[in-house]
Write a protein that binds this DNA or RNA. Structure first.
Lengths: 331, 331
DNA sequence: CTGAAAGCGCTTACAG
DNA sequence: CTGAAAGCGCTTACAG
């Protein structure tokens, strides 16, 4: 049998109300009474039922997290950041993915309606921004972890995409490169434009022109990076530095360059974006613009927790700085 | 205000009990009554409160998942497998890590006591096997996802480590290699011995001897693979094939070989274990023994679900087959 | 400072 | 086939 608050009350010779008070550290409990209750709790190893307390209190001390898929290379870092800060506050995390499409989303929606969690953390859900915005408008606390420059109308945590692009250009310039190519991500992501703008601005500031023919679309996958590079080589135009807008693309770029007989970084320097765990172990290791993934997760969780405990949270993106990690692909 | 079962009952002119019956698809409800209730539910968009139902029913329709850390490269695949099958049954997943050590474990333990979930899925928790066994003995349904050959005394899902080692050896042999080195993982993992035994058995069967001096310890990290390889090269002994017991090690092995001027696979073939996402994108791409990570997660979740719905689950490891993925590091 | 009572939103015997 | 009532294990005004 489960040990309940009634059992504690009985043994401590107080009412359940009083036990509840010491449990929740309410004021106005006699010190010696509190001590006695705590002792009984200790003795019989009582832990309050999360469900019952939640039902009575009207909240769950649990937050939901919705991610597109668990198999993205940087998802683990973000999740770890979230879990670390949630856990420190005694909150649980319910994980949802939209891996199975509409069916997943339906399941998720029913958990929302069932009040399974108090607030929601969400990572770039493709085509669901409106739905999430609606939930937020309906009163569900939401914080978005935004690596795609979506600029939503609710609290979010983002990174300095523009400055990241800028720093990539500055580094290539400083390394003596002068003819540049860019492999972008899908154009509908805000970050793609931001990273490109930053990159171009830095070149402009240095009086270097970016040939539009050397700006080609990728899709944030390794295969896309390969294809884009084949396209670049096909133009016949010369270039000695490539800015790939994420690390997976950069890996594809390096492979395609190598397959075409070019040396990285001797012939062409390559720089990525993200700093996924793999980046340190490619050949050559990848210079990249680092997104503080763990910190993004931790910050978003912190923001949501603040929201849940009554502190107002501004609907303005909190922007965390990127940083350049120099490795061998662009020394 | 939240829509409750009372509201539905009122509108459908029935009792809460009857609403509850159609909600849970109990028999013995008049067809037309059921129809009327369902219609009201549809109209006002009623979804039962997970907490309240759980409290009354005595379960949560939620399972806990405990993992050492989210940043392991293969964790994402396993988690996705778990989430996919849990979600299909309408179950939620509470995620816990032991990333912050004892403090994490204490938080986890309190959630266990609070009955926050009905059953537990666990991945190789370092030094916690006894604790988990105790929970299982105390009546908490537990299924372990075991990539380390721990052979616990409760239900688990594992892979064919021995056969995996065997297939690695067969493949190297078939490729014409004859002098072998092995970079192991930490010796206290059961899988390390199993993979080595399988590898050695295949060599024995082919009449090839494995020189003990060419079997060196790694630690399942890339740095460990580098260090181990430096050690191998230091022996002055020749070898033309290396079996690294996981992919991270294999990446380190390839780097150290390259740094020493050796070509992979021309001079030395390298074969890993796991098939993490990165394996396809190393240079050269990595031949490896694939663990069906997604399937391991899915199977474990299935097993736990069976357990929760009353079906007996045997305390015997369910063993899933590995398979060889041939890429360029060992063609 | 403390207790009795009502209530959170469901489910489940028990009657009929 | 259906309803009234008790109960799941807490918290929270309300009195005193």
């Amino acid at each position: 049998m489960r040990v309940t608050i009634a059992e504690v009350a009985l043994r401590a010779r107080v009412s359940k109300a009083t036990v509840s008070r010491v449990l929740n550290a309410k004021p106005d409990v006699d010190a010696s009474t509190a001590r006695r209750v705590r002792q009984v709790i200790e003795e019989i190893g009582y832990v309050p039922s999360a469900r019952a307390a939640g039902l009575a209190r009207g909240n769950t001390r649990t937050v939901g997290m919705l991610v597109p898929s668990m198999t993205w290379p940087w998802m683990g870092e973000v999740l770890q950041g979230v879990v670390d800060t949630l856990e420190a506050e005694g909150y649980g995390m319910l994980l949802y993915t939209v891996n199975r499409g509409a069916e997943s989303l339906a399941q998720f929606a029913s958990h929302v309606s069932a009040n399974a969690f108090d607030g929601l953390l969400v990572v770039e859900p493709p085509h669901t921004t409106n739905y999430i915005a609606k939930l937020h408008a309906a009163g569900l606390p939401v914080v978005m972890i935004d690596d795609r420059g979506t600029h939503p109308r609710f609290p979010s945590v983002a990174t300095t995409n523009r400055e990241g692009g800028w720093s990539a250009a500055r580094h290539l310039l400083a390394g003596g490169r002068s003819r540049f190519a860019v492999v972008t991500g899908p154009r509908h992501f805000g970050c793609v434009g931001d990273r490109l703008d930053g990159f171009r601005d830095a070149l402009d500031a240095a009086g270097v022109r970016l040939n539009p023919k050397l700006v080609v679309d990728g899709d944030f996958t390794t295969g896309g990076g390969v294809a884009a590079t084949v396209g670049l080589l096909g133009t016949g135009l010369r270039f000695d530095g490539v800015f790939a807008q994420n690390d997976l693309s950069a890996i594809g770029v390096m492979r395609a360059l190598r397959d075409s007989g070019r040396l990285v970084p001797d012939d062409v320097a390559v720089i990525g974006f993200d700093d996924v765990p793999t980046a340190a172990h490619t050949e050559p290791s990848l210079t990249t613009v680092r997104q503080p993934l763990h910190q993004m997760g931790a910050t978003a969780a912190r923001l949501l927790l603040d929201h849940l405990t009554g502190n107002a949270v501004r609907d303005v993106p909190l922007v965390l700085p990127t940083s350049l990690v120099v490795r061998r692909s662009a020394p």
